[in-house]
Design a protein around this nucleic acid. Sequence first.
DNA 1: CAAGCTGAAAGTGTCGACAATCGACGCCTA
DNA 2: TAGGCGTCGATTGTCGACACTTTCAGCTTG
Lengths: 230, 230
Amino acid sequence: MRAMSQPVGLPMLAESDLVRQVARRLTDAIVQGRLAPGAKVAEAAVARELGISRAPVREAARLLESQGLLQASPRRGFFVRELSPRDVDELYDLRLCVERHAAVEAARRLTPAAREALRRQLDLMRDLARRDDPVAIVEADYQFHRLICEAAGNARLLRLFDGLASELRIVIGLIGRLYDDPDEIARTHEPVLAAIEAGHPERIVAHVDHHIGVARREVGRLVQSLTPTP
Amino acid sequence: MRAMSQPVGLPMLAESDLVRQVARRLTDAIVQGRLAPGAKVAEAAVARELGISRAPVREAARLLESQGLLQASPRRGFFVRELSPRDVDELYDLRLCVERHAAVEAARRLTPAAREALRRQLDLMRDLARRDDPVAIVEADYQFHRLICEAAGNARLLRLFDGLASELRIVIGLIGRLYDDPDEIARTHEPVLAAIEAGHPERIVAHVDHHIGVARREVGRLVQSLTPTP
DNA sequence: CAAGCTGAAAGTGTCGACAATCGACGCCTA
DNA sequence: TAGGCGTCGATTGTCGACACTTTCAGCTTG
C-alpha cells in the first residue's frame, strides 16, 4: 500500500493511449480552424479517418467537452463549441482574474530561470513583430502568458489557463492575424514583465489589466464581426 | 419555429445518459468518504454493481478525471485522487483568486434576488450553528460561496468554483466536522456579505481573504494530520 | 529466511455489433 | 400551396468479447 505513494510527478511516458492522441488531433483541428465552430464531430467519421474504433474517439470527445472545446448534445453527438460575444466576455473575465493572480504570484517567487525565460520570450516576440509573422506572434503571445502562469508555481493554475486559452483559440484560430499592429503586441507585454520584475503588486495588476483589456477588445471586435446579428 | 421559443426551464426529462448518472454516483461516493483517497475504482466492479456495461463507467471515470476527482494511471485504472498538503495549498490559492473576483463582480451587479438569497443562506447557517449540525453546516457553507459565484453572473466562473469545491471535498468529506466552533462559520461569513452589500472592492477582498484564510488553515491542519509524514 | 521467478487471475484497452433514437425526405391532407 | 405525418437512413448509446498488461500468490533457489 505504501508501494505506490508517489504516482504524481512522473512524466507519464508511454502515452500509447489512443484517447490522448485523438484528443490532441481534434484539439489541433479546432484551434487551427480546420473544424469550424458549430461543425459536427461524428464519431464514426473520425474513427474511420484514424483507422480505429469509435470507443477511443468517444472518450476523447468527452474529454474535449469537459475542456469546453466540444459541446455534447444528447443523442445528437458532439459539435465544435460556438462562442458568443457573451462567452468571450466570460472567458476574458476569467483570464483577467487568473492572470492577475498568476503575475503577482510569479513576481513573488520569480526564479532567475523563469525571469530569463520571460525575457527570451519577449525578445522572440519583438523579433517576430519585426518580421511580421502574424501566426507565430499569436503563438508566442500565448507562450509568454503561459510562462507567467508557470512561474506562479501552481500546476492547477496552469491547467486552468490552458483551458481558457484553448477555448479562446476556437475563435482566434479563425483568423490569421489578431492585431492590426504586430508591433503593438511586443510593446504591451514589456511593461507587464517590467512590473513583474519590479515586484509591485498594484503596478502588476494595472499592467496586466491594460494588456488583457487590449486583447479583449480585439477579440471582442472580431467575434462581433463574425456573429450574424440576430 | 415560434412554437418552442422557450427551451429554457424545462426539466429535461429522460436524462437516460448513463454516463451522468454514473458520474454522479461516483462523485457522491467520493465526497461522502465512502471511496477513500487512493482507492482503486475498477471499471468492471462498478459496472457489475450498477448492472451496466463498462463503457459508460469508463466515460464517467474520465469525466471525473478531468474534474480532478479521479486519477488515471495507464493500464492500471482509475484511483481516487490523493490530496497532498501542497495540493490543498494550490486549491486554496485558486479559491482565493476565484472568490475575490466573484465577490467583487457580485457586488457590482448585485440583484435584489441574489442579495435576498445570500441573506437567507446566512440565516440558515446561523440556525444550523445554533443547532450544532456539523454536516449540514459544511454544505450550507459551500452553498453560500456558490451563491456568490452565481451572483457574479459568469457561468464559467461557477463551473470553475464547482470544480475546486468538489476536489476539496475529497478531503473535507473525510471528516464530519470541519470547524471546532460551528458558530465561527456564520460569524466569518457576515462581514463578507456586509462588504458585498456595501460595495467597497478593497473591503470585499480583505474579508474574503480573511474568511478563506481561516478555512485554509483548518483544512491545512486536517490534511497535515492525515498525511503520514514521509 | 529473503529474494527472484513463474504462473494464473484479474483488469484494462480496444474492437465490432445491435437496438434505440434522431433528422430528413417524401407523401398526404386541408 | 403550406403544413402535418409516417417512413427510411444515419448515428448514438450500450453491450459483450478478445488480446495484452499488470498484479499477486506460491514456489524455487541462493
